[in-house]
């Protein structure tokens, strides 16, 4: 008797999204990143196609490493004061992309001006050939002033700009449309809200194929399971043909790990948890690997050692 064929076929495919533009494409990037394109659930190589491995971005911040934990800071001591050197270092460490966070523009920090932020973007673009993800401050008024300047400064480079949210998406959508960038759409931990946001963005003219979704992120032990299942459920709908959820998924892990006591507490403070040098990157890489298994395609990390661990692990198991 023949063995029954249990392979699942889906009507939907995850969108392929390319970030970055080389000189042939009108930009100055030396490499681009393409994510998405999967035709089935994650990691099931026997039944689906996975044309692109997940991409890893390392985070750099205009506010430096203030507030970052020691195990991150130790790698960054020489470069944290210089965005260009920091970005170049990330490239050296094997990042596929740079995630530039405009934290300094946040009113709680120095309140850096839109023009200064745009200069920061330019500086990073000059210092590295990697594609760029630019992350605002999550303060709506600030983002609406800062991001349009930054999209202009990066015109032609096909960056990913975030974040667009349900109550603040028009300015960033218009800026990305004007300067040909991709939009990072953020809706908290709920596929219905993601879907709603994507339809709003589409209604103001952003192509569904030009969005990456961020269902927000929880660190291992601190809400990761919620986001994990949100990504899974979105993937089921996407593969069943719901075009409003076929956007590839980003998770911002490094920042979340920075809030986890088990990952940031030094060994002297919590000796029962063992070596901090081992624990900190492991917490970050384990979170990243888990998210890849849920379907996430673009992962933002902070710790270069976590990047190395996660990349090595994914390479060994990617179908």
């Amino acid at each position: 008797m023949a063995v029954p064929d249990v392979k699942e076929n889906f009507s939907g495919t995850i969108n392929e999204v390319t970030i970055g533009a080389t000189s042939e494409e009108g930009g100055t990037r030396t490499s681009t990143v393409t994510i998405g394109g999967e035709t089935g659930y994650p990691m099931l190589g026997f039944e689906a196609e996975y044309p692109h491995p997940p991409a890893f971005a390392l985070e750099i911040s205009t506010a430096g490493v203030e507030g970052w934990h020691d195990e991150c800071r130790k790698h960054l001591a020489d470069v944290a004061g210089d965005l260009g050197a920091w970005a170049a270092k990330c490239e050296e460490w094997g990042a596929d992309m740079i995630c530039l966070c405009l934290d300094a523009a946040h009113p709680d920090n120095e309140g850096r001006s839109p023009q200064q932020c745009a200069d920061d973007v330019k500086r990073v673009l000059e210092a590295t050939g990697l594609p760029l993800l630019v992350w605002g401050t999550d303060v709506d008024e600030v983002d609406n002033n800062v991001l349009p300047k930054c999209t202009q400064a990066a015109a032609g480079e096909n960056c990913l700009f975030g974040t667009a949210k349900e109550d603040n998406y028009r300015t960033i959508a218009a800026s990305c449309l004007a300067d040909n960038h991709k939009v990072l759409a953020e809706a908290p931990s709920d596929i219905n809200l993601s879907k709603q946001l994507h339809i709003l963005l589409r209604d103001v003219g952003v192509d569904l194929a030009d969005m990456v979704m961020h269902p927000t992120t929880g660190a291992l032990g601190f809400g990761m399971v919620y986001i994990y299942t949100t990504i899974e459920r979105g993937r089921i709908a996407a593969l069943s043909g719901d075009r409003l959820l076929q956007q590839p998924v980003l998770v911002n892990i490094g920042k979340e790990i920075g809030r986890v006591k088990e990952a940031v507490s030094p060994a002297q403070a919590d000796p029962q948890w063992g070596s901090h040098e081992v624990r900190a990157p492991l917490w970050e890489s384990a979170s990243a690997i888990s998210y890849v298994e849920s379907g996430a395609e673009l992962l933002v990390l902070r710790n270069p050692e976590a990047l190395r661990q996660a990349k090595t692990a994914i390479e060994s198991m990617w179908p």
Binding site: N192, L193, K195, Q196, I199, L200, R202, D242, L244
Partner: peptide
Amino acid sequence: KQLYCDDYIAAYMSN
């Protein structure tokens, strides 16, 4: 059978 969002009619049509 369709995922809810506030604009689900428009979402259905755009699918």
